[in-house]
Design a binder for these strands. Structure first.
Lengths: 205, 205
DNA sequence: CTAAAACTTTGCAGAGACTGCACGTTTGGT
DNA sequence: ACCAAACGTGCAGTCTCTGCAAAGTTTTAG
């Protein structure tokens, strides 16, 4: 779970958080059951016992309720990256920065799997997820450029970040299609290892 | 018909193609001028001199008129991949498969640049573009799996394809932000070379 | 304890995206 | 010239999403 003691927040914030997750899980559950177009915002809101207007106070679109909080992931990854010692390579630094998100995903495996199942089923949602990451990508490119001392226009930072993101994405999908039983961290490390080796053809060894 | 010259299709198909490109270019031009939310489908349709209902006969959504024809790219890449000799590595095969799309993009540089400028400006459009590529990605994973003799569930095909796509994407963005003056093919080759080397930190050489 | 301040929820009205349907026109083939 | 298929378009209707203002709730200050 994330780092918050529910008792320390006021009632207002507690209810807000509650409503938000209620909307998100209702949306995921309903869409998993019936399909994306067969679920309206009004139905989701009713399942969470709020008005449909309130839904839009929490999420700017129906899709956003399904893809999860990309901003929280962004903060997490950026903070982690800043904490990685400078002597590590860019690729290794990114690998470590993903660790926190990875453990969060695995910690909430049931919801994560439901989300992955729904999201991968609808290209528009998969795109939405990736677009959230696009914002993260730009921030990461800046950070990697600063860390390596390269100018932000240099090809390298953008390339490493994009490739690392691709590795994370494939590991996530692989983990989800395996039913979430295995270790996501192990899958991620494996992917990064292959990338660091230059993607050698596994047949020729 | 008296002639079967592919460039001289019937009047019907000629007009269809004409209308389609008119809608797409009008959409790109207007959105570049005013912004995505400040342009309605009705305005785009009016600029192309058709009804707004007709717009939706050509494109399923406003966004689709902006991101271009991802299906054509898909066909092109898949056909090219099938033609690459089997002795080349997966990564090299993918690099070659992208060549045709790359030359098309560079050949229509003005429109491509307008599109890249618009698309990169709006995450939702970037997402739409990537979602088209998501379908291509799955097909490529199948093809690479078959080519390498690996099972489709193996991590490698998905990883190579995702990474190659990331390389293509960064090369495209880089080319566009440079104003489309340089050689896109050269940028792509450079990116692939760095990837094949395992993304070594350029600081340490 | 109480009342103002700050915030949240909600209904309402409305713009805009998108779909199914029906009807009229155009086009290609014969 | 004729027909069937394809195309364009208007219309009605659903759904997403936004701004606004009223009403309710929580927090804060006195």
């Amino acid at each position: 779970m994330t780092s918050n003691d529910p008792t320390r927040l006021g009632r207002r914030d507690r209810k807000k958080r509650q409503t938000r997750t209620a909307l998100a899980t209702a949306a995921l559950r309903l869409v998993a059951e019936r399909g994306l177009d067969q679920v309206t915002v009004e139905e989701i809101s009713e399942a969470a016992d709020v008005s449909s207007r309130t839904f839009f106070n929490y999420f700017p679109s129906k899709d956003d309720a399904l893809v999860g909080d990309t901003e929280a992931d962004r903060d997490s990854v950026l903070r982690a990256l800043a904490a990685v010692p400078a002597e590590h390579s860019a690729l290794e630094a990114l690998r470590r920065s993903f660790a926190e998100v990875v453990t969060e995903v695995q910690g909430d495996a049931e919801l994560s799997l439901l989300r992955m199942r729904v999201v991968t089923q609808y290209p528009v949602l998969l795109a939405r997820l990736i677009s959230g990451n696009a914002v993260t990508e730009r921030a990461l490119v800046e950070a990697i450029a600063a860390r390596t001392g390269l100018p932000p226009e240099h090809a390298y930072p953008a390339l490493v970040v994009a490739v690392a993101g691709a590795a994370l994405r494939t590991a996530l999908i692989r983990w989800a299609t395996d039913g979430g039983t295995g270790s996501l961290a192990a899958l991620l490390d494996e992917a990064f290892a292959v990338v660091a080796a230059g993607l050698p053809d596994p047949r020729t060894g």
